[in-house]
Amino acid sequence: MNNDPQDAKLIERIQKNPKYTELVTKRSSFAWKLSITVLIIYYSFILVVAFAPKFLGTKIMEGSVISIGIPIGAGIILSAFLLTGIYVRRANSEFDDLTQQIKEETK
């Protein structure tokens, strides 16, 4: 692939465009931050399951049978959905606009 000199020139122009650097830096730092958030949420949960399962059995209030594990579990599911929403919202507007500008400037 990419033996075409035309392609090589285009790639070089894109790489030199400061907006490309901006896109790469912003997008990857955002994506990794969100990934790490998910990993922390999930592995904290798994470690609690492994080391302190009783904690998740704590009742949400006096006299209730419902344990805090239930809202926490539902909360993790909801947080996964919300985090994807946050990423898609920013990527589909800001990052895509930036990509569009790069494409037009380096035509």
Binding site: V38, Y42, I77, A80, Y87
Partner: peptide, 15 residues
Amino acid sequence: IYSIGWLVGWPIILF
């Protein structure tokens, strides 16, 4: 616990 494990792969796939 299983359900949660199966779901949290999705945000990672997206990011």
